[in-house]
Amino acid sequence: MDIRDLREVPQYFDEVADRIWRAWWELDGRRLAEVEAALRDVIAEPGFPFSLVAMRGGQFAGTITSISSDISARPALGPCLAALWVEPESRGQGVAGLLSAMAQQRLIDHGFERVYLTAKPSMRGYYQPGGWTRIESDIDADHLDVYVRTLR
């Protein structure tokens, strides 16, 4: 498994944007072009924010993005991990854990001490055993949980 910054592998930009759009933005009636613009903003400058790409044998396997804030009801909470996506054929193989771990290490390298994320309640069995602490529930119209994790 090779995990790289999207800035280093721009040939995966379209796949990353497509997966983010299909998984989260399309359902809200947003256009793919909006995701592409937001993703361009993420990778416009080196450092933070960032988007990572997992590849196996040159094939796209997944992605994760870290941005200042991803919790509209709690904009002061950040940085956040967002848009964790693993291709169906790569699920159950540790790709999500590797992407998350690498993103967290990059946040540590940037001097952050904690990180947040939101997830559907159905994901509690994944995040809570993985060291995330649920600090709030039933956020936004999607009734999401808010998690925090100490990085240091």
Rank of each mutant, 00 (worst) to 15 (best):
M1T: 11
D2V: 12
D2R: 11
I3T: 05
R4T: 06
D5T: 01
D5V: 06
D5I: 03
L6F: 11
L6N: 02
L6A: 04
R7E: 04
E8W: 10
V9I: 11
V9D: 01
Q11C: 14
Y12K: 05
F13T: 02
F13H: 04
E15G: 09
V16F: 00
D18M: 03
D18I: 05
R19E: 04
I20S: 02
I20H: 03
W21V: 03
R22D: 00
A23Y: 09
W24Q: 04
W24A: 05
W25A: 07
D28W: 11
D28Y: 11
G29L: 09
R31W: 08
R40H: 09
R40G: 06
D41W: 08
V42M: 04
I43E: 00
A44M: 07
E45M: 12
P46G: 04
P46Y: 06
G47R: 12
F48I: 06
S51L: 10
S51Y: 09
L52T: 02
L52W: 00
V53C: 01
M55F: 02
G57W: 05
Q59M: 08
G62K: 02
T63V: 10
T63Q: 05
T65R: 04
T65P: 03
S66D: 01
S66K: 03
S68M: 12
S68H: 12
S68F: 10
S69N: 12
S69H: 08
D70Y: 12
I71E: 00
I71R: 01
R74G: 07
R74E: 04
L77C: 03
P79K: 02
C80Q: 02
A82D: 00
A82M: 02
A83H: 07
L84D: 01
W85Y: 13
P88D: 03
S90D: 11
R91V: 08
G92C: 06
G92V: 13
Q93W: 09
Q93K: 05
G94N: 04
G94Y: 01
V95C: 03
V95M: 03
V95Y: 01
V95D: 00
V95W: 00
A96W: 02
G97L: 10
L98F: 11
L99M: 04
L99I: 03
S100M: 10
S100I: 09
Q104T: 03
Q105T: 15
Q105L: 13
R106C: 12
I108M: 15
D109E: 06
D109K: 13
D109Y: 14
D109A: 13
H110S: 10
H110V: 09
G111V: 14
F112Q: 04
E113H: 14
Y116C: 05
T118N: 04
A119E: 03
P121G: 03
S122A: 15
S122L: 15
G125L: 08
G125Q: 08
Y126V: 14
Q128D: 13
Q128C: 13
G130Q: 12
G131T: 02
G131I: 08
T133L: 12
T133G: 08
R134H: 10
R134S: 10
I135N: 05
I135H: 04
E136W: 07
E136Y: 12
S137F: 11
D138E: 14
I139R: 06
D140A: 14
A141P: 06
A141D: 11
A141S: 11
D142L: 15
D142A: 15
H143S: 14
H143E: 12
H143R: 15
H143L: 14
L144M: 13
L144G: 06
V148R: 07
V148I: 14
R149Y: 10
T150C: 14
R152S: 11
R152T: 09
R152V: 07
